[in-house]
Structure formats: structure tokens, C-alpha cells
Write a protein that binds this DNA or RNA. Sequence first.
DNA 1: CCCTGATTCGC
DNA 2: GCGAATCAGG
Length: 253
Amino acid sequence: MSWTDERIDTLRKRWEAGQTASQIAEELGGVSRNAVIGKAHRLGLQSRPSPVKPNEPAAATAAAPAPTPAPAPAPVAPPKAAAPVAPAPKPAPPAPRPAVVAAPPVAEIEDEAEEQEVAVEADSDDDTDEADAAPVVVRPAPPILRSVGPGGFLRQAPGEQQAPITPAPPRRLVPAKPSAEMAGKTTLLDLNDKICKWPIGHPGEPDFHFCGEKVNPGFPYCVGHCGHAYQAQLPRRDRRPAPPLPFGGPRAR
DNA sequence: CCCTGATTCGC
DNA sequence: GCGAATCAGG
């Protein structure tokens, strides 16, 4: 495979989008991860945070006691998106908010749950004499700034994040009463190394359980279920191609 | 072990 | 220019 303009273009886009060299190589096909990295460097694409790089070679001279002007690394490309194509930045987790929150949308149900008070670290201790208790400055509400996410939706501004969904009030826990339909079934708690862990049904369904037969020694399943779990590897050309992903995954080769 | 990117070096 | 081999951190 050669680096046609089209392939180079793909490489550029993917690299700048934060895909890993492996992902890019797989998508392009016919090239290795190393080839992608090598090409990216030859193209002069910006190097990305490397696990092996943060070492600065210039630290060996004269112990360098001088006031190093804060390096202030320029905003590096977002580290490694989880999504393969569009590296959507993760929304920031709800930041610790001031006391004022919107009233929970759910009416109070019971008050048998005592409100747990979050112990705020009030450092009223006499640690030092430094008067760090600055008077609270009440500033006018700043204009709401929203950023626009991919697809055009408006993100919440930091100050207007919704209060987390009110958790259900704790209920009294009662011992689960073994239902008739589970009688004799192998449940999660019954699993051990000697019985087949092949799931029957689906988690969450009322009668979800496990096979429970004696295992095929050395395997987590019984002989019968080993037949389902382990199948001969077919030559690549005989494998059925994976169904296309809904979002348009890597091109089939 | 796996993953990652960077670098080297023979082709 | 190319990419396998190698290095080295996570």
C-alpha cells in the first residue's frame, strides 16, 4: 500500500482528531501502526502526548536553579478521545455548587430519611494568624455563557447545571423472598469454579440464572456450553464480516 | 502482559 | 520515503 493523497488526507484528519495510530492504521488498512506513526511524523503532524516523552533533555546543565519561567505548555490536543471519530469532550462533572440549588423536582415523599449533612471543612481552627477569611464579595450575576457542542446543542453553563436527580429515599431492606420461579435455579451467588457459568436468560429478567451443570474441567462452562463458547477460528476470508456499525464504523476492506 | 507514541536505521 | 524493530511510559 502506498500513501496516496487520499490516504494521507485520512491520516491527517484522524490524527488531528485524536485517533490512535492503531485505529488509523486499522481504518486505512494495509499499513501498520508504526507506518502510521512514521508517516505522521514525516508529514510534520504535531506530536501528541506520548507516554514516553515528558522528559526534557535540557535538565542536565548546571543544575538549573534559575527561575524557570513557567513553561505554560500550550493547550495540548485533547488527550485520546474515547469515541473513535468525534472526540466529544466530556461534560464536566457537576462542580461543587454553592448552597442555593433549585428545588428538587420531586415532592418530598417521606422524611424518615434524615438528611445527611455534608460536613464542610470549616477551618475555624486557629492554624495561623493569617487573616485569610476574606469578606464575601457579592458580585452581580455574570452573563450566561454557553458553549455549543457538536450537533449544535447548547451546553449548560457551569452556573446553571441541573441539580442531580434526587435519589430515591432509602427504604427499609427486607430479605428477598425466594420466588418460586427461582427455586432450584443457579443464581449469581451460587457460582463457583465447579459449575457452569453459562447464563440462561438475561440479567434483569426475573428468572435469570446460570446453567449450573458440572463444568468441563479447565473451562468455565459445561461440556455442552463449551461447544457454544468455543468455536474453531475460521480463516479470515471465510469469516462473515461484522455488520456495519450504526454510526458508520471503519470502512470494510 | 496489554496499550500508547517516538525514534532508529536498513532498505 | 518507508516501515519494522525497538524503546519506554502507563
